[in-house]
Amino acid sequence: METKVDEIAPNIFRLSTFIPDMPPYGFTFNQYLINADEPLLFHCGGRNLFESVSKAASNILPLDKIRWISFGHVESDECGSMNQWLAAAPKAQVVHGVIACMVSLNDLADRPPRVLENNEVLDLGGKRVRYIDTPHVPHAWESGLVFEETTKTLFTGDLFTQLGNGPAVTTESIVSSAILAEEGFHATALTPWTASTIRSLKSLNPECLAVMHGSCFKGDCGAELEALATYSADALTKAQTS
């Protein structure tokens, strides 16, 4: 396995590992390192990816400089290597929302996590990340996303998941590719609040979507979010009437 590094926005690095033997077209696992006075890692990756991803991250900065670790929700590919990162970065602390800490992370993390309230801003020094609760979007009670305010980068977690191994960043719409993946995996929890939660992210006015599985997007992010929200609303209606 090889983890590739791309700077998708100033001092925001995508660490991407492509697994070609995952059907049908292979799959990318992306982590993001925000380089600031207090660097933050978003997504840890699974335990078996730690060696490759941490080696790539060490080419950006010494691992012991990492101060914060976060992720979308509690799932192996999001936080399986969390405690390996905590061991490699002795000053690091996991940060997440109230539900994730209460239900899982107070027990799972080797060091107590820091709780972030909805819309609380964590000042990294040169970068600012806003934590946003997105319960059950895409598919876990404790789900949440972060938005880096200085570069207007929204870290979307499993939203906009794509198959295959596309470019690090694209200006072409990723919605159709995300719908193709969703109709294969059926990973999104369709609730009465799914579409409105996705739609609410438009108010951030993001300029970059940092996707966990697939290419990042730069361009009219509001239109991308609206299209994904519309698809989710239509999928819920179809499920209710079928």
Rank of each mutant, 00 (worst) to 15 (best):
E2T: 15
K4Y: 04
V5R: 13
E7W: 06
E7C: 08
A9F: 06
I12D: 04
F13D: 06
T17V: 09
I19G: 01
I19T: 13
P20E: 00
D21M: 10
D21G: 03
Y25I: 02
H43C: 08
H43V: 15
R47E: 12
R47W: 08
R47V: 10
S52F: 15
S52N: 11
V53A: 12
S54K: 10
N59H: 14
L61R: 14
K65C: 12
W68Y: 15
G72S: 10
V74Q: 03
S76F: 13
E78W: 04
A87S: 10
P90I: 05
P90A: 06
V95D: 00
I99L: 13
C101R: 14
C101E: 00
A109W: 08
A109F: 07
R111E: 02
R114C: 02
L116A: 15
L116K: 15
E120N: 10
V121D: 03
V121T: 12
L122A: 04
D123W: 08
L124D: 01
G125Q: 08
G126D: 03
G126T: 05
R128V: 02
V129A: 02
R130K: 15
I132L: 15
T134C: 10
P138Y: 04
H139Q: 06
H139P: 01
A140F: 08
E142Y: 02
E142W: 05
E142T: 05
S143E: 10
E149T: 02
K152V: 01
T153M: 04
L154P: 01
D158W: 07
L163Q: 12
L163F: 14
T170V: 07
T171F: 01
S173Y: 02
I174V: 12
L180N: 07
T188I: 15
T188Y: 12
L190T: 06
L190Q: 08
T194K: 13
R199N: 09
L204R: 00
L209P: 01
A210Q: 04
M212N: 07
M212Y: 09
G214K: 13
S215L: 05
C216E: 00
F217T: 01
D220M: 00
D220A: 03
A223M: 04
L225Q: 03
L228G: 00
L228V: 01
A229L: 04
T230D: 05
Y231G: 00
Y231E: 00
S232W: 09
T237N: 14
Q240Y: 12
Q240H: 14
T241E: 11
